[in-house]
Design a protein around this nucleic acid. Structure first.
Length: 231
DNA sequence: TGCCAGGCCGGGT
DNA sequence: ACCCGGCATGGC
């Protein structure tokens, strides 16, 4: 075990990823509401499948809180079919827009004014929103400074033995937030870069692949210069 | 063909 | 407080 990474190591990893992948321009969504819908639709699902569902909603002019509030959940489910778990996700989208209407008159700007800690608790209380989805919404829709942890984060940092495979969401999040400056631009780019690395090089989530020394997927070589292939 | 993808919920210990 | 089955499509 290498043990927990220092602040310097986390920043070194960031600089390396940034040099390799460049600016990520996240989240891939044009409006805060689109970001929120995307965050729910991409749960445990390939982004391309979620993106196709969002295109359907756009085409039907339904990508707005007022529109989603009105349509029957069954029709919504059919439109987002490609995102998988479509019945669940239709309910989840409905539960978010209900909350938005009940608590903020459907106004995302009003919701955004709430403090980070309070808003996070509120989001976690909504059906279908767990820690990662809540933090994605806070960071990418509302611009709040939180570090988003996902499967790639755990996989990549566990492969480097910076954390254990059993580390909880909160433990991993604390690791980053205790060491990095609380800067929403940095958190934004860091998470996006982790996903960029993960998508390209970090397939195979099964336990048997975790120990396979022949697979370099998801590993960073921190010793080689950025100009060389770091993987 | 089977395995996997930017999780979360609810019921059981 | 954990653990686990269920939820489902599209790509390789």
């Amino acid at each position: 075990m290498k043990g927990q990474p220092s602040a310097e190591t986390l920043q070194k990893i960031y600089r390396k990823l940034s040099a390799v992948f460049g600016p990520q321009h996240w989240w891939p969504g044009e409006t805060p509401f689109e970001v929120i819908v995307g965050a729910i639709l991409t749960q445990n699902t390939a982004w391309t499948n979620a993106a196709a569902a969002i295109e359907n909603l756009k085409r039907e002019r339904l990508l707005a809180p007022s529109a989603l509030k009105k349509i029957p959940v069954g029709r919504l489910a059919r439109l987002i079919r490609s995102s998988g778990y479509f019945n669940q996700k239709a309910r989840r989208l409905k539960s978010f827009v209900s909350y938005l209407n009940d608590s903020y008159q459907g106004d995302l700007q009003k919701m955004r004014r709430v403090s980070l800690a309070r808003l996070r608790n509120q989001l976690l209380g909504i059906f279908g929103i767990g820690p990662e989805t809540a933090d994605s919404i806070l960071l990418y829709a509302f611009g709040k400074p939180v570090f988003v942890v996902d499967a790639y984060t755990r996989r990549i940092f566990a492969r480097h033995s910076f954390i254990g495979w059993e580390a909880t969401y909160q433990e991993i999040q604390q690791l980053f937030m205790d060491r990095l400056p609380g800067n929403n631009s940095l958190f934004n780019e860091y998470h996006a870069l982790v996903v960029a690395l993960g998508k390209g090089f970090c397939q195979k989530t099964k336990p048997k692949c975790r120990e396979c020394p022949l697979r370099k997927v998801g590993r960073l070589c921190l010793e080689t210069p950025a100009a060389a292939n770091p993987f």
